[in-house]
Every structure is written in C-alpha cells, then in structure tokens.
Amino acid sequence: MSEDFYCDEVLSGRTPVRKVLETDNVLAYHHTRPYYPVHIVAIPKKHIPSLLTLEPSDHALLIELMDVIKKVAEQVLAEHGGCRVLTNLGEYQDSKHLHFHIVYGKPLR
C-alpha cells in the first residue's frame, strides 16, 4: 500500500470510489475494501498526515470534516440503528492521511 492511498489513489481519481457526501474540502465514500458491512471513509482533501499533526490553521477544515462525519453517521444510524466512528494513529494507521471510518456491523474478516 502506498504511504498515502487517499492522495495518491482516491483524490487523484486513479481509484474510483462510490461517493456518499462531498464538499469543497471533504470527501466521504464507501471503502474500497470494506472491513464491515457498512464501511464509509471520510477524508479531508488537503493532505494532513494524522489527527496529531493538525495545525491551528486546520481548525475550519476539521469542523467541516466533523460536519460531514456527523451527517454520514446520522444516515447510517437512521438506516441501521447504530454506528461507530474510528480513526487510527501510529502503527494502526496504514495510510498516512487523516481519515475517519464510519462503520456498522461485525468485521467481515
């Protein structure tokens, strides 16, 4: 896997995705290799390596990202009755681009 799948593949258009919600600065889409029955990823379009590298200048973007995550989570909750919102750090973070998973159900594998 590339160091930044989201910039290199998704945002570049090399890997097509099924969009759930998109703004000027944020994209939420169905995971390309889902680990859960419902598995949506939300990413900022600006490269930010992780939650820990956010800068004060990123605050407006973070609010927009959280707003998209909230809307997607509301959709999943309404349809399935629950969901989880997750982010990974360090060795758990495969792609070094800030991203959140909105998931429902038990792991598929």
Rank of each mutant, 00 (worst) to 15 (best):
G90E: 15
E79Q: 15
S2A: 11
L98D: 07
T32R: 07
V72G: 08
K96P: 01
T15F: 00
P107F: 10
I43Y: 06
P56L: 07
K45C: 09
G13H: 00
K71W: 01
L51E: 03
V20H: 02
E74N: 14
G82A: 14
L65T: 00
H59K: 11
G105L: 08
P107I: 09
V85S: 12
S95I: 07
P16D: 02
D8A: 09
T53A: 14
T15M: 03
Y92L: 12
R109F: 03
I40Y: 09
Y35P: 02
R84Q: 13
S95H: 11
I102L: 06
D24K: 12
V10D: 02
V26L: 03
L54A: 03
S57E: 12
E79D: 14
V20W: 02
E22W: 05
D8H: 10
L61M: 14
I102P: 02
P56S: 10
D8P: 06
H101Y: 11
G105D: 07
L98F: 05
A73D: 15
S2Q: 04
R33N: 13
V68Q: 01
P44W: 06
V68G: 07
L86H: 05
D24E: 14
L51N: 07
K96S: 00
I48L: 14
H30N: 08
I48P: 15
H80R: 01
T32P: 04
D4P: 04
M1L: 05
K106T: 03
